[in-house]
Design a protein around this nucleic acid. Structure first.
Lengths: 167, 167
DNA sequence: TTGACATAGTTAGCCAGCTAACTATAATGA
DNA sequence: TCATTATAGTTAGCTGGCTAACTATGTCAA
């Protein structure tokens, strides 16, 4: 996401702002720090998951299935919710099926469609990963009290409103 | 980074917290929203850059070179600062060199090393891209006043302190 | 009812990261 | 001094995303 390690100092930004007058120094600094922290969080999450033999893509599929009453969904719906293409979802399901964590169930009513079902082994895997993930996340966020979390969410909501103006 | 589109509602999180008591609902919601907004910002940035025929990787290389007094650096140093491997940097430089935006200059003092230099065309490309990028970023962040930007940076700094506890 | 269009899933091939291994050169210490 | 080790850059091959194209099935309107 943001690979860049060497974030610009205020000095560098000020220098760039001389050449490019549109530069808004505090806006740039805020966005880059946001991207930096988010990227490091994402890497930390990947590290945690890899200890359980998972990657984000497959893990989200398991969670999405667990959210369902019947522990079941279709590749298209899963792709939408997971934010990947249907082609990518095919690959994720292939991997999970090989590992025995989900199963493809063919249905009769629409023969184009397949039901993806969380297996007992898949649920077992989640019961192993989720407590570890939640424990680490809780530790990480202990630095923020409830008021700060609410403030963060409010500010992020505002930035989210601004994103269309970026595109 | 965070593909997941279908973020959990508080309801879903509460349900998960029943099965997994370590779940800290506001911590999870904050982190996921942080990842979501950061990912959307990153995508918006990519979209902006692609209009100028660039991708983040190559663009950061140009910026890192422009930051240097002599508009010059080496692949190793660039790789460190850009946060990619030296192998990846070789590829980025290959692309930029083909486009005429940087040049490889062989030096005599250490014959293992190569100097990468921003060309006039490279500077021209930056002069085209940066104003557009800065203008969009300014627009996007207009939703936050200076106090909110400072508050955001403070909170992000705290989360950053917490990340080691995640790994 | 049947031809045009839409939808579900898959396959094939591209891309930009990565690791590991390689070549060439430099630095070091027994 | 010269064998070992370290460093700079590259190459080869892996990965998990992507798009585009394909097959099979379902839907709908003339």
């Amino acid at each position: 996401m943001l690979q860049l390690k060497d974030l610009p100092t205020t000095d560098v930004l000020t220098k760039f702002a001389e050449r490019y007058p549109d530069a808004d120094v505090t806006a740039i600094a805020s966005v880059l720090q946001l991207l930096r922290v988010a990227t490091d969080l994402s890497i930390a999450l990947d590290t945690c998951l890899s200890k359980h033999g998972l990657l984000q893509g497959r893990w989200w599929v398991l969670i999405l299935l667990m959210r369902e009453e019947e522990k079941t969904s279709t590749p298209s719906i899963l792709a939408d919710k997971a934010g990947v293409t249907r082609a990518t979802m095919t690959g994720l399901i292939d991997g999970l099926e090989q590992a025995g964590l989900v199963a493809r169930v063919f249905t009769k009513d629409d023969r184009r469609s397949v039901l993806i079902s969380l297996t007992a082994l898949g649920q077992l895997k989640l019961d192993e990963v989720m407590p570890d993930y939640y424990r680490r996340l809780r530790q990480c966020m202990r630095v923020l009290d409830e008021a700060q979390r609410a403030e963060l969410q409010k500010i992020l909501g505002l930035i989210n409103l601004g994103i269309p103006a970026f595109i």
